Simulated scan of single mutants.
Amino acid sequence: MKVGIIGYGAMGAALRETLEEGGAKIVAALGREASLETAKAALPDDVTVTADFAAFAATRPDVMVECAGHEGLRQHGPRALAAGFDLVIASVGALADAPTEAALREAAAKGGRLVIPAGALAGLDALSAARRAGLDEVRYVSRKAPRAWRGTAAETMVDLDGVTAPTIFFEGTAREAALAFPQNANVVAAASLAGLGFDATQVALMADPTVTGNRHLLEARGAFGELSISVLARTLPANPKTSWLAPLSLARAVLNLHERVVV
């Protein structure tokens, strides 16, 4: 199975290891000019590393995977889908921007499949199934160590250096959370798309000095009953904002595209 990766950083490196264990191979990487040398140094010589989408697509991967952030997905996602490639995305939070979501859905309707993995969050299969019967409420709570919120809007909402106990610094809709915290809230977007949507899904974000990883809590109720799922995920050593489960979930979604038995 040949994989083309859009954006090669900490997420891409973690994804590559799992893909190779599953029998897949990265054949091409698409990035910005400024990042090409770093990607070339990290990847085998037979991998095409380029800033040109046409050259990237010419390698004809079986699937493309996006790890480029919101802007990278907005720039390259629609044309990857329009060209007929299946696209598995990491930057799910970008879909909180209505024009971006519309562009991706329109391209997917005419071309390749847009595949949205669960990321670091469990239970999205149950949430999506429960939606068929009707959902009354979906709530997501994120607890991360103060250092995981550095470099984000949280720095203007709470004194990260002074947090000594679990502290909620944001409460609002999933759309607001995903747009305000693009590096931290991709799971918020995934839960929204599986459940009640961006504007009806409620979110609380917390800085918690007591957690040893990233804690995700998903709660829902509706005609099906009630759901409550908690995940404590270890973080990527190179990026505490991202859970190790995120690249593992991406790899699962990629590899499942070619499996004959899918669980």
Rank of each mutant, 00 (worst) to 15 (best):
G4T: 07
I5D: 00
G7Y: 09
Y8M: 10
G9N: 12
G9L: 10
G12W: 08
A14W: 01
L15T: 13
E17H: 11
E17S: 14
G23M: 05
G31M: 07
R32I: 02
S35A: 14
L36T: 14
L36S: 13
E37W: 01
A39K: 05
V47P: 13
V47S: 11
T48M: 12
T50C: 08
A54R: 05
A55W: 04
F56C: 07
A58I: 06
R60W: 03
V65C: 09
E66L: 04
A68C: 13
A68D: 06
A68N: 12
G69C: 11
H70Y: 01
L73W: 13
R74T: 13
Q75P: 01
H76P: 04
G77W: 05
L81A: 13
A83Y: 06
A83C: 07
V88K: 04
I89H: 04
I89E: 05
G93L: 02
G93W: 00
A94Q: 08
A96E: 04
P99S: 01
A103Y: 06
E106T: 15
A108R: 01
A108P: 06
K110H: 13
G112E: 12
L114V: 11
P117G: 02
A120C: 09
L121F: 08
L121G: 05
G123T: 13
L124S: 08
L124Q: 04
A126P: 00
A126C: 01
D136G: 09
E137K: 12
R139T: 10
Y140P: 00
V141T: 15
S142Q: 14
S142R: 11
S142G: 13
S142P: 02
R143M: 11
R143G: 06
A145Q: 08
R150F: 06
R150H: 10
R150Y: 06
A154I: 10
T156I: 01
T156Y: 11
T156L: 13
D159W: 10
D159K: 10
T164F: 04
A165H: 09
P166Y: 02
F170Y: 07
E171L: 04
G172M: 03
G172N: 04
T173A: 09
A174G: 15
A177P: 11
A178Y: 08
A178K: 08
L179W: 07
P182E: 07
A185F: 03
A185I: 02
A191D: 06
S192L: 03
S192I: 03
A194T: 06
A194M: 10
G195R: 03
G197V: 06
A207G: 10
P209V: 07
V211Y: 07
V211H: 04
T212C: 00
R215Y: 12
H216M: 13
L217F: 08
E219Q: 14
R221V: 03
G222L: 06
F224P: 12
E226L: 02
L227Q: 13
L227E: 01
I229E: 12
L232A: 01
L232C: 01
A233H: 07
L236I: 09
P237C: 11
K241Y: 02
K241W: 00
K241S: 15
T242W: 00
T242H: 00
T242P: 00
S243K: 00
A246T: 15
L248K: 12
S249R: 05
R252E: 14
N256M: 09
R260N: 12
V262G: 01
V262L: 09
V263Q: 12
V263W: 14
